[in-house]
């Protein structure tokens, strides 16, 4: 509602903002000539107007840009996750114990982890027996599903050295394997953090890397005390190349959209 005590305000504003029609402008100027109060109000409004733009510019310069970029990155992951979950559910029939919501939550934690210090513990799958997910391939399938949500943007931020050390310590403790050398284990790959999951009651550690040439690559280790050793084996799963092997009661794999030779060469750095 316009202010009844200042009926000329709309004209004054239009005049100052240069949007007043020429004849109205002349009439207003004539009125101002004879009305000192109106002239004073015009001057005050003019003065006040000059302060606004610089103040709002200064405010925008204060925007926490890095944090806002992180918020956007996490919104993009949330959106990508939703899109994956809304796809036709053919896979759900093949893997009835797959828990997409938990993966989404874990993924959100993964992305937000560096920002808000969220828990290191995610969870893939759930405990229980008798499903296909218990098969040898199950954990690799789960990793491939999860990794399909990861983009270079997901891994845009490298963890701080302290955070990386804390993540690897937690993962090493849970798994009973020393993973402290993981950041430098693969020449040419940039370490992007470790995350601890639970796959059907067994600890599963996923260590993320960014390959400048081939994008996200993960190195995963799962406790499999009952499993016989397997020599490094290459397979394709959901468009990913996977090299997996087992030794000393652990299953291990490297996964990425990279040529088999690349992953095989990387596997040699940590296998055996």
């Amino acid at each position: 509602m316009t202010d009844p005590s200042h009926p000329e305000d709309t004209r004054l504003i239009a005049f100052l903002d240069g949007t007043l029609a020429e004849e109205e402008r002349a009439a207003l100027l004539a009125l101002i000539e004879t009305d000192a109060a109106l002239q004073a109000r015009l001057e005050r409004i003019e003065r006040g107007g000059r302060l606004i733009v610089p103040a709002f510019e200064a405010l925008q310069a204060e925007a926490p840009r890095a944090r806002l970029e992180d918020l956007l990155a996490s919104a993009i992951v949330t959106d990508e996750t939703r899109r994956v979950l809304e796809r036709p559910r053919a896979r759900a029939l093949r893997f009835p114990r797959w828990q997409p919501r938990l993966v989404a939550a874990a993924l959100a934690l993964f992305v937000l982890g560096g920002v808000v210090g969220a828990s290191l513990n995610g969870r893939i799958g759930r405990e229980g027996g008798g499903s296909e997910m218990h098969s040898t391939e199950g954990w690799r399938q789960a990793v491939a599903e999860y990794w399909s949500l990861t983009t270079p943007e997901t891994l845009a931020l490298a963890p701080t050295a302290e955070r990386a050390a804390a993540e690897l310590r937690a993962a090493s403790d849970k798994l009973g394997v020393d993973l402290s050398g993981a950041p430098d284990a693969f020449p040419g790959l940039s370490f992007r953090g470790a995350q601890l999951f639970d796959f059907q009651g067994r600890p599963l550690v996923q260590i993320a890397y960014l390959d400048p040439q081939h994008g996200p690559i993960a190195y995963c280790v799962i406790a499999r005390p009952d499993q016989a050793d397997i020599a490094p084996t290459t397979e394709e799963l959901d468009g990913f190349t996977i090299v997996h092997w087992a030794s000393n009661g652990q299953g291990r794999l490297l996964i990425g959209r990279a040529p088999a030779e690349r992953l095989q060469a990387l596997a040699q750095k940590v296998a055996g």
């Binding site: 504003i13 003019e46 006040g48």
Partner: peptide, 19 residues
Amino acid sequence: IGTIMSRLASVREKLGGMA
């Protein structure tokens, strides 16, 4: 539109007093 312009005038007038 009149409300928008009236709000602008009112804010600017307040800030003008501040100056």
